[in-house]
Design a protein around this nucleic acid. Structure first.
Lengths: 184, 184
DNA sequence: AAAGAATGAGACATCCATGTCTCATGTGAG
DNA sequence: CTCACATGAGACATGGATGTCTCATTCTTT
């Protein structure tokens, strides 16, 4: 059952995103299974980490699909993306923290594809005059992901209410911290 | 000499912020010293990590001092903070990724102090009508630090030019991604 | 130049997470 | 009820990073 594997992976994220060096004992306990069973499902720690990363990328890709970034107003598209990705913010936080994953060619390629999709949205928005052109699409994409990861951490640590997370993320990223739009 | 220790710590950051599980061999080589000398300076891995964290917090505190957040226009103060903190963005990136450090009471307390200073700036800015009040000061502080860390990673990986980093950070955080100020 | 300290290189010993195994228990299907 | 199978618990071996040691070399200081 893929559901079984995924539920274990989700439990693993809860531990690993906070402590990347957590022992397998701890992860197994968090998943409610024994270390032996954990080993039966995933051949080893490396495989487990890779699978968690792959799950995170699958979820992120699914969120991009759901948001349908190519259609309609770029701003509305980005708000759809926020809503779609916030539930999996913890996965994204794990991805952001685990740079090591990007040594894997498969993971890296998959990531590049998703990142390109987000960049394309920003590029389209810039061409339509919706997003600012002084900031590169690459930086906008990067910063967006940083904030998604930040939301994931903040929610997990109880510093941000899950209910507020989508609003806080979208408003800050789109509108910034300033009340009145002044640009130096 | 504290300078010696700090130069080793800076080299350590360069390695650890990318691969938190890097071997001491690697860190020593990156610092241009032998593993033996590394052990002579820092009693062990744990101590080294803690010292790196402490250095990051010292630098961040120093940046807060330099920025003089209590004076003048809050927006100008935040721009001063950006300029002051960007050179040490890599340290901040390390801090953000190493949640484990916050188990140490000393580190945690020091962090709380600095975070409170940033929150106070946002609170002051909100009271003066400069910053948006729909976003909590806590979230603004958190998001700001997330972006600083993101800048650190992006610069280190060559995805963002150091020359652009301060501008990109300040503009996105203050003004957001939208060109025309629309709020839904 | 000579003495002292600091460093680098390498050889160990140790510890601990990991990986693998066995066995007892529990569970579900027939 | 019985058998097949999955799981949990624990023991055990292993590997690799860490910590400690020694010794030769280099640099500094006088």
């Amino acid at each position: 059952m893929a559901t079984d594997r995924d539920s274990v992976l989700e439990a693993a994220v809860g531990v690993l995103s906070r402590r990347p060096t957590a022992h397998l004992d701890e992860i197994a306990r968090a998943a409610g299974i024994s270390r032996a069973t954990l080993h039966r499902i995933f051949p080893g720690r490396e495989a487990l980490i890779r699978e968690v990363g792959a799950l995170g990328l699958r979820r992120f890709a699914a969120a991009l699909d759901t948001a349908d970034l190519e259609s309609g107003d770029p701003q509305a598209a980005l708000r759809r993306l926020v809503d779609a990705v916030v539930p999996d913010a913890a996965l994204c936080a794990f991805l952001a923290g685990e740079n090591q994953l990007f040594d894997d060619p498969g993971i890296n390629e998959l990531w590049e594809i998703q990142d390109a999709r987000v960049r394309a949205l920003f590029l389209r928005g810039q061409q339509q005059g919706v997003f600012r052109v002084e900031l590169s699409a690459g930086w906008l994409s990067e910063a967006f992901f940083d904030l998604v990861a930040g939301v994931g951490w903040a929610v997990q640590d109880g510093r941000l209410a899950p209910r507020d997370s989508a609003y806080s993320l979208a408003e800050l990223f789109l509108g910034g911290a300033l009340r009145s739009p002044e640009q130096s």
